[in-house]
Design a protein around this nucleic acid. Structure first.
Length: 649
DNA sequence: ATCACACGC
DNA sequence: GCGTGTGAT
């Protein structure tokens, strides 16, 4: 079903003018899309024991002539071995190189870091050679390791992980999987060297060099072969643009951002932790007093039994799919008015969440060299094209509630000569909906610089904009969210806690007022049914194998994906293009200010105070111009500065 | 390992 | 809709 709770019609006869941005001139034919897939992963017959290979160990006096040989290549596959998965805290154990399939070289580097630096110095000319194309699997990792030793790869890049990401965004893409799938070859498992993962897992530094040589050289060899297998698919699937213009360049931008990290105010967090602990304990005790018994309030299972069996708070309490009572925030909120205990439970939940996930863990995740936190961006995880962030996740720092927002005060500039800048897109996803649907009312609202939720409410409730009251705006905002998520009428009712009847009424009005949106949703789903994929403005594709499923639920999910992915994905493309541009302009102008965070529609900078007035308009201009939208829908971005992230916002 | 929950966009 | 982290089981 679509937003309006209707089944999406198959061939409504609409000739799909509105969705034409998604059916570009070079509209690929369905057959092309599905060819070139390797057969599903049967156990691969080939491995290092039964396959010809020439893997060489290079050390000492052999290095100079080896480097000379590499200098003559145009394309080199490169891989590092280290003693840590965290590239910001890793020592180089060795490097492997390959430029001919079946042949590779391993150069070990010793624990003595001064010695390692001497070896790297011999490779300086190679790393700086601008005419070399560096091939690798997850090159960001290797580039980050090298950056800590003071080196960059100055030529161009081809990351096989990113290539596979744009070819098959929802696939698995560890090197082992790719090798099995595309080369029919099973690489040496890492467990053979350092043991099974867990606390007993060893360290690459302690493995004998001959063993590492085979493993590491094979990695470079395989990755080079993967490049040759994947490159033609970029072309046959028509995803070269998003690969070469977005993902591949972004890799170097993210490397620099992860290297910088952001400073956190540990004293502030420690103080705040005590405060949260005190208040959480107070709420907890209050709950036990009201319940008349003590239990583990952090256990949803126990809490559900107390609320709905002992206290009988709701005779028709909802259950989760595993048969427990549901005690999520939405469920409890509906009971909050009549039951003081529920307020205390919600307070406890909020406070313990803030404490454990953010306040107590951030200080522990500081890098030992920099004292800063260096998030890691996953560039090939989110199926829509977004980045994700982990260790720590800096894309879900609280902002909604007062006490959560407080945590943003802990993110601070690196020193007194810097401030934080935060630049964010305004309503970017809705602007994209307006632009690609071409809905006249919504496009016009943006062209006139209106508050989109108020403008929506005015139309849906048929009143003047000045007469839109809070509740009308709030509900209209929820409908707009529903569109972005391809959510059904059920979802809206659920979301707003209103009846299905009222939800349907709001939706019927919306449908009349914004008929172009309805048409976009129909056209997009129909396009997906016909072609098996949907795509963004930049040509990032997502294949939807379930779009023609006979199972109502499964198909419905695919239909929501069809509607949501081009929107979320286009927004992702836009900010990624902006990041590449900003990075380039900063470099050209030799600015010392650094881009340090991305939060989907926001960029954060650690800016040198004297540069603030120069970089602010540059950042905004790059963001606004990154990806012009059709139908004259303007793209707006705002920027602020401050001595912490909250203030900058 | 999986689930429920809660945080973000 | 898309993610990640935590604590419980």
């Amino acid at each position: 079903t679509d937003l309006f709770g209707n089944a999406v019609a198959a061939g409504k006869g609409s000739p799909k003018p509105a969705a034409k941005s998604f059916a570009p001139a070079q509209d690929p034919i369905a057959e092309i899309i599905n060819e070139g897939e390797a057969p599903p992963s049967l156990p691969a017959p080939r491995n290092i024991t039964n396959t010809d290979h020439k893997y060489h160990l290079i050390q000492g006096e052999a290095i100079p002539s080896f480097v000379d040989q590499l200098m003559g290549q145009t394309e080199i596959c490169f891989d590092t071995e280290t003693n840590n998965l965290d590239a910001n805290d890793a020592e180089l154990v060795g490097m492997s190189f390959s430029f001919i399939p079946g042949e590779a070289y391993y150069v070990p580097t010793p624990a003595d870091q001064a010695e390692t630096q001497k070896i790297l110095l011999q490779f300086a000319g190679l790393f700086n050679n601008p005419s070399i194309k560096w091939v690798g699997q997850n090159l960001k990792y290797d580039m980050l390791v090298l950056k800590w030793y003071g080196y960059e790869l100055k030529g161009s890049w081809f990351d096989t992980m990113l290539a596979h990401y744009v070819i098959e965004p929802d696939g698995k893409r560890s090197m082992d999987m790719l090798s099995t799938q595309f080369l029919g070859y099973d690489p040496v498992p890492i467990e053979d060297l350092i043991g099974k993962k867990g606390k007993s897992q060893g360290n690459m530094r302690d493995v004998e060099i001959e063993k590492i040589k085979d493993y590491a050289a094979e990695d470079a060899d395989i990755t080079l072969q993967l490049k040759h297998a994947l490159q033609p698919l970029l072309s046959s699937k028509v995803v070269e643009k998003v690969f070469y213009e977005v993902e591949n360049p972004l890799l170097a931008v993210l490397t620099d951002m992860e290297y910088e990290g952001i400073k956190v105010d540990v004293n502030f967090l420690n103080d705040y932790s005590l405060e949260l602990d005190k208040d959480a304990k107070r709420s907890e005790e209050s709950v036990y007093a009201q319940a008349g018994l003590r239990f583990n309030l952090a256990s949803p299972k126990q809490l559900g039994e107390v609320l709905f069996e002992k206290l009988q708070l709701d005779p028709k309490a909802k259950k989760t799919k595993t048969g427990q009572y549901a005690t999520g925030e939405d469920v409890l909120s509906k009971l909050a008015h009549q039951n003081k205990i529920v307020e205390d439970i919600l307070a406890f939940r909020e406070l313990t969440k803030l404490k454990s996930t953010y306040v107590d863990s951030l200080p522990l995740l500081r890098n030992r060299k920099t004292g800063r936190v260096h998030t890691s961006y996953a560039q090939a995880v989110a199926v829509t094209g977004r980045l994700s962030s982990n260790n720590p996740n800096l894309q879900n720092i609280p902002v909604r509630t007062e006490r959560g927002r407080e945590i943003r005060k802990a993110f601070i500039p690196r020193d007194e000569n810097h401030v934080l800048l935060s630049a964010d897109y305004s309503q970017i996803e809705l602007r994209i909906v307006a632009a690609i649907s071409g809905d006249p009312a919504m496009c016009e609202a943006f062209q006139q610089g209106k508050d989109i939720h108020t403008a929506t409410a005015a139309r849906v409730y048929n009143v003047e904009e000045k007469d839109v009251v809070k509740e009308m705006r709030y509900k209209a905002k929820s409908v707009n969210f529903g569109i972005i998520y391809g959510q059904g009428a059920f979802g809206l009712a659920d979301n707003l806690g209103i009846s299905r009847t009222e939800a349907k009424e709001i939706i019927d009005n919306y449908k009349k007022q914004f008929s172009g949106i309805q048409r976009y949703m129909d056209d997009t789903v129909n396009f997906a049914r016909e072609h098996g994929y949907v795509q963004t403005l930049v040509g990032r594709k997502r294949w939807l194998r379930d779009i023609n499923s006979s199972n109502f639920t499964v198909r419905g999910f695919a239909e929501r994906n069809a509607i949501n992915s081009p929107i979320q994905g286009t927004a992702a493309d836009m900010i990624k293009l902006a990041m590449v541009k900003i990075h380039q302009v900063f470099k050209e102008n030799k600015f010392r200010s650094k881009m340090i965070l991305q939060v989907h529609d926001e960029l954060v900078f650690d800016a040198v105070k004297e540069e603030v007035d120069i970089v602010k308009p540059i950042i905004l201009e790059c963001m606004r111009q990154a990806l012009p939208l059709p139908n004259n829908v303007p793209v707006e971005a705002e920027i602020g500065s401050g001595t912490n992230w909250l203030e900058a916002h």
